[in-house]
Every structure is written in C-alpha cells, then in structure tokens.
Amino acid sequence: MAELSPIQPCLWFDDQAREAMAYYVDVFPNSRITSIDEYPDESLDEHFTGMKGKVLNGQFTLNGVDFVCLDGGPLFTFNESISFVVACADQEEIDRYWSKLSKVPESEQCGWCKDQFGVSWQIIPANMGDLTRRPEQIQVMMQQKKIVIAELENA
C-alpha cells in the first residue's frame, strides 16, 4: 500500500471507483493512479460477499492532491454538502473543466456542477473574490450556471 498524506479525501463509490480514478486522472494535469488494492476472496469475510475484484483501496493524485477511494456499495451516495473547488486561471480553463465535469444540468449553479459519478465540483476563477466584491457582481453570479468571467467583470 502506498504512503498516505496526513489528510486526504476518500470517495465512496458504489462500484465505479476504478472507472472514476481513470476518468479523473485524464481530466486533470499532473495526475496518476498510485495504487489499487482489490477486495480479497469472498470466503474470508461476510462483508466481502459480491465484492471480489472491486476496489477496496484506490489511491490517486489529481494535480498534486492525493485522494483515496473505494467501492463500498450503494449504502452511501454523494451530495452537494461536499464539493471540490477547482481554481482556474482563465475562462478557457473554466470551459475545459466544465465540459468534462458537468454531466448533470439540473445541478449547475454559480459555478457548481456534478459529474457522472455524482461528485460535486466548483469550477471557478482563481480570483473569484475579486470578481464578486460588488452586489451587482454577486447578482450576476447567482444567475450563472458556468461562471463567465467577462459577465462578472462587466457587472
């Protein structure tokens, strides 16, 4: 097993951990899958029933941030109470991440989106604080789905 960072997020997937890791390392630069440990033989423990070959512990890095994940079954699902912020340098970067990570249109608002695995992301400009200093800028942002920097600058 690879060394763990002092603090890192763990994502519980039903049975898509391997697929999600591969997808995310393709989306983000400087990313890689570090290790994948599979569930052992089902006869070792009742909790392993039906889990053979699925991910018990997956470790991966997305642009320098370490993550852990697992296939844990459908007991827990993702929701918007946890999201990952992607600070983007410019509109082109926002557009690129948005096109890859926003797969649930009804979840889009103020730069928030949800991917095909149900994970929530905030795709925002790195200088979001500067772009939302005035009430009229905040009003514009509240009407946006994907953040459009020029609209905030012109508000």
Rank of each mutant, 00 (worst) to 15 (best):
D71T: 07
W12Q: 07
E80C: 08
L101V: 03
P29I: 09
Q139N: 09
Y24K: 03
E80R: 11
C113M: 04
E38F: 11
Y23D: 13
G72I: 00
P125V: 05
V68I: 15
E46R: 10
Q8D: 06
V148D: 07
R32N: 11
G64T: 01
G64N: 02
F78I: 06
D95E: 09
Q91D: 09
N79F: 00
S102R: 02
A20C: 05
V85G: 10
A17P: 05
A22Q: 15
E46D: 15
I149K: 04
F13Y: 09
N57V: 12
A22R: 14
F60C: 03
I149L: 07
V119W: 00
V104S: 02
M141D: 05
K103N: 11
H47R: 14
A126H: 11
D115P: 01
G53H: 04
V148M: 10
L62P: 01
F78R: 06
A17D: 03
D15Y: 10
D45M: 12
L62Q: 03
F60G: 05
E92D: 12
H47W: 13
D41E: 15
Q16F: 00
A17S: 10
A17N: 04
D66K: 10
E151L: 11
P29N: 07
Q16N: 13
P135H: 02
F117G: 00
R32Q: 12
Q8C: 08
T61A: 07
L152W: 03
S99F: 02
K145C: 08
G50N: 05
L70Q: 08
L62K: 00
K145H: 11
D45S: 15
K52Y: 12
K54D: 02
R134H: 12
V65L: 11
K145T: 14
Q143F: 03
Q91P: 06
L131Y: 05
H47C: 12
P105S: 04
G50P: 06
F48A: 10
T77G: 14
V148G: 04
M142E: 11
Q109E: 12
P135K: 09
A20G: 06
F67L: 05
M21D: 01
P9L: 07
F13K: 06
K146H: 06
L75F: 15
A150S: 11
Y24R: 02
E92A: 15
Q137H: 08
C69M: 01
R96Q: 11
D26V: 07
F60K: 05
G73F: 06
N63P: 06
N30D: 14
W121V: 00
I82G: 01
F28Q: 04
K52I: 05
